[in-house]
Design a protein around this nucleic acid. Sequence first.
DNA 1: CGCTTTCTAGGTAGATCTGCGTAGACGCTC
DNA 2: GAGCGTCTACGCAGATCTACCTAGAAAGCG
Lengths: 205, 205
Amino acid sequence: MSGDQSVVIVDDDDFFRKALERVFHSAGFRVESFASADAFLTGYIPKEEACIILDLRMPRIGGLELLDRLKERGIDVPVIIYTGNADVPVTVQAMQAGAFAVVEKPLSSELLIARVRAAIAETRAGRTRRIQVAAARAKLGLLTEREVEVARHLTEGRSSPEMAAILGISSRTVDAHRVNLLRKLEIKSIAALTRLFVLAELGDS
Amino acid sequence: MSGDQSVVIVDDDDFFRKALERVFHSAGFRVESFASADAFLTGYIPKEEACIILDLRMPRIGGLELLDRLKERGIDVPVIIYTGNADVPVTVQAMQAGAFAVVEKPLSSELLIARVRAAIAETRAGRTRRIQVAAARAKLGLLTEREVEVARHLTEGRSSPEMAAILGISSRTVDAHRVNLLRKLEIKSIAALTRLFVLAELGDS
DNA sequence: CGCTTTCTAGGTAGATCTGCGTAGACGCTC
DNA sequence: GAGCGTCTACGCAGATCTACCTAGAAAGCG
C-alpha cells in the first residue's frame, strides 16, 4: 500500500530516531534517517513520495533553518516538525516557512502516522502543478533569446508583420523563428505556446 | 499612508477590543470591531485592504470555526489569531485552516502592528491573482454554450475546419462563433483567449 | 578547416484567419 | 406580433499563417 512512500527522519536523539524508524517501518513505509541536519543535506535525494520529519533542536543547524534550506532548494516534500521544544511563536514561524505541521513529542505512533499520511496526500495534489511548471520552464529553456522574444510577442497576440516592425527584422525571419520555436517545443499552436508561458510564469506568484 | 487599510477586530473581551481599536486607530488604520463572531458574520463586508484579528475563545462560535466560515465564503482577507489561549496543536490547526499567524496575548502594540502590516502585504500579491481568476470566469460566463465549446477547441489549437468536422457544423459557422466570442471577450487573439482559460481553470487547483 | 547553431532573408503555394456583408430558423420576452 | 439573442450558413477580399524550399553571415566547437 505505502511501499512506495517513504519517511525521512532527521533527529540527533538516537532514542527517538530509532523508535520512529521502527514505527514507520512496521507501518509499511520505506525509512531513511539522519542523525544531523548536515548529514541530511548531504545525503538526502528526493525519490518517491515522502514526508520529512524534523527535530527542532539539533546541533549546528536547527529544524527551522533546515526548513529554509529545503525551500531554497525547491524540495517538494512535506515537512513535519516533531519536537519537544515547540511553543506558539516557533510553530507560527515553522508553518509560515512552509512546514505541513508541528507536532509535540511525544505523540502516539498512530497519530503521527496519520499526520504523515495526511501530509503526503496533501502534497500529492500540488505536486502535479509544480511538475508542470518545471516542465514548462525546461522546455522554454531550450529556446534561444530571440526565439523567446518572438514567443513572448506571439503569446501577446501579435502578428508576424507587427513583430517585424517592433524587432526591426523581416516578417519572414519572424516566421522562421516561429516555426523553429514551435518545432523545438514540439507544439503546433499559439494556444499551446501560451499555456506553456502561463504555466512557466505561475511559479512566480 | 495606511488610510486605505483597515483592521477588523473580533473579540468579546471589551477591554482588549477597545485597546486594540485605539492602537490601530492611532497607527492610522481604519478600524471596525465586533464583540462576537455572529455580529461579525452578519455585519462585515470586505472593502479595502484589511486584516482580521480574531480571538480564539469566544462564546458560541470560536475563532477556528469562524476562520472556517470565512474560508467557505471565500473571503480574501488575512486573519491573525490573537489570543491568550493558544497552544501548539491549536496553532497548527489555525495555520492549516489558513490563518496568517497566531499571536499570543498580550503582545506589544508595535509587534502586533508589524504583524498586521506583514499580513496585508503578503496577501496583496495573492489577491491580484485571485482577482484575475474571478475576472476571467466572469468574462467566460458571458459566452453561450456553443461559444464556450468553440473557445475550448480554439485553446487546444484546432483550426476552423477541424472543429467544423468535430462539431458537425460548417467551418463558416465556426468562424462566426470565433468572431463573436472574441468580440464578447474584448480580446483579439487566441493567445489572450488561452490566457483567460488557463486563468479560469487555475482556481480549481 | 569543416560542422553546427543562430539569426537573418527570400520564394511559392495552399490553408486559414479576419472583417465585411447577408439571412433563415428557433426560442424567449415585452 | 415585434424585437432580441442564438445558432446556423454563405460570399468575398485581403491579411496572415503554414509548409515546403534555398541561403548567406557570424559564432562556437572538435
